[in-house]
Design a protein around this nucleic acid. Structure first.
Lengths: 150, 150
DNA sequence: ATTCGGGGTTCCCTGAAGGAACTCATGCTG
DNA sequence: CAGCATGAGTTCCTTCAGGGAACCCCGAAT
């Protein structure tokens, strides 16, 4: 085994990286999210090698992030988000906000997000699931949980 | 150029991946966040190759995610989060929540997060920066922004 | 003067990404 | 019906990045 596998680590971040951490995977997830669901569409959009795209799509289907849906009598498939995959998109939204804020430069953000509930252009704001107040990196203590290593 | 560079793409997710998307980088960020700030500590914790750790630390310092602080008369450094880096940790918190929810299994989450403001064990909840309602993958429309490609 | 320990640097080897050509099954066109 | 087009992979080769281990440098302690 050359490239280290993260999935065996006792860490939810490492395990998540084992699902989505390989090169290209987050961008493939983004494409499927915004409606580019077919092999050729994704390949053309990203300019990714066909071999690597095949590997990534299979891995994400195996992991339950995508499901394959036939759309033709021939064996032709579209990739769609599962519930597991839909929740993973929240990671992309946070990454997009950070990139908008720190890397977009004077041109401004390349895409905007309009929130259905209020109709406003907005970004995602991390809040505490208990009290609803802001929850940023400095606002938490990290404690060992039930699944901690011995 | 073999490995494709994402930084030139007109996409904040791709640009963010150019900063933090290489293998090991998110785990290095996690270590610095939780207080493992020295080369030897991080190397021992992750089992990463020293060569790759050197490359990643330099890259993250160059990108303004970490700053190098001397802690000795000798040239010894600790790595600390900048404001830019601190905000990037929010991505880790979202990844941790997803991993806790979908990958932790029966043992439960390996770590817990206690929110300072309310003192409760909690997780991070993505909400709209405008109206405060939940903001998940299906709750937004994606529109071209001012920095969109031609 | 010698050892130690932190923080790298150098080396080689293997495996993964890039790139382009090839395959295969089906549907359309003439 | 023959021939071409199309979507989705598959195969093959080359190049580069990660793993692993040894080596280096430099100030401090003994």
């Amino acid at each position: 085994m050359q490239r280290t596998q993260f999935g065996d680590m006792t860490c939810s971040i490492a395990r998540t990286l084992d699902v989505i951490g390989e090169p290209w995977s987050p961008l493939i997830l983004r494409d499927v999210w915004v409606g580019l669901t077919r092999f050729e569409q994704i390949q053309a959009d990203l300019g990714i090698s066909r071999k690597v795209l095949t590997e990534r799509l299979n891995h994400l289907v195996d992991q339950g992030v995508f499901e394959r849906r036939p759309y033709d009598a021939r064996p032709r498939f579209e990739y769609h988000l599962t519930e597991k995959g839909t929740e993973l998109v929240e990671m992309l939204m946070v990454m997009a906000r950070w990139g908008d804020r720190w890397l977009a430069g004077s041109a401004g953000p390349p895409v905007l997000y309009r929130h259905h509930a209020c109709g406003e252009i907005a970004s995602v704001d991390p809040r505490c699931s208990r009290c609803g107040d802001p929850m940023h990196a400095d606002d938490v203590d990290v404690l060992p949980g039930p699944g901690a290593a011995t």
